[in-house]
């Protein structure tokens, strides 16, 4: 087999070696340099690029670029933080949080919430201050025998769609468009048992929107006080 060429780039002043063609995001994460991201999947052939969090600046380039789509090049000088980048990330994250329905006590991702981690990294609150909460009260999709999909929690990162097509039966997809976009399964016929075995969509969801049917909700604490 052909040996993969290793090249060296500089991220935030640190020399990082990476495989040729690797995207900046993975080179940075491998080197222990954090770049917030929500929709990136390393194995995906085509980066989805929807969350717009992983912006970096590259010397010699005018605008910020997404680290998940930009391949490393020899001698590249990358900065993962600047005022401009910070503003883009914070606004994008605030926009996401203004419509993600938070039910942290009853969330399957409790204790390992990626959203919370990003909020901490960015140094901002989970609750958006500038935008009113988007009131979406969409019905759950309960047509799958193994999981329930909650569109009110979903942040539309597309990871479940990718993983289902990659490892499961490929029976979920985006439906509608714009602000009405949801993930749909809609009671399709499962030909194999891959869906039951994989459960990958549940594992990969950063928003706790894919809920296994056997997931027992933590007893609801007096919700009146929470409101």
């Amino acid at each position: 087999m052909e040996k993969v060429e290793e090249i060296t780039i500089k991220i935030d002043g640190i020399s990082v070696s990476a495989k040729k063609g690797e995207k900046i995001l993975w080179a940075a994460l491998d080197a222990g340099i954090n770049i917030p991201n929500l929709c990136a999947v390393r194995e995906a052939k085509i980066p989805f690029g929807s969350c717009r969090l992983c912006f970096v600046e590259i010397e010699g380039r005018t605008g910020p670029v997404t680290a998940c789509t930009e391949p490393v090049k020899e001698g590249m000088v990358v900065r993962t933080d600047s005022d401009r980048i910070s503003r883009l990330r914070r606004t994008a994250f605030e926009l996401i949080m203004a419509y993600h329905q938070m039910e942290c006590r009853n969330c399957i991702n409790r204790g390992k919430c990626e959203l919370l981690k990003i909020a901490r990294d960015l140094g901002i609150k989970l609750k958006s201050l500038r935008f009113r909460k988007r009131q979406k009260v969409l019905p759950l999709d309960e047509t799958n025998p193994f999981f329930i999909y909650d569109p009110n929690k979903c942040i539309l990162c597309g990871k479940c769609v990718w993983v289902c097509h990659e490892k499961g039966e490929g029976k979920i997809d985006f439906a509608f468009r714009g602000i009405d976009t949801i993930i749909t399964y809609k009671g399709d016929v499962l030909s194999e048992q891959k869906c039951a075995l994989s459960g990958e969509c549940i594992k990969i969801c950063p928003a706790g929107a894919m809920i296994p049917r056997n997931f027992s909700l933590i007893k609801k604490v007096d919700t009146k006080n929470e409101m």
Binding site: K171, I172, D173, T184, K186
Partner: peptide
């Protein structure tokens, strides 16, 4: 095709 794709 998956029904979800058609619905999509």
């Amino acid at each position: 095709a998956p029904l979800s794709q058609v619905l999509g």
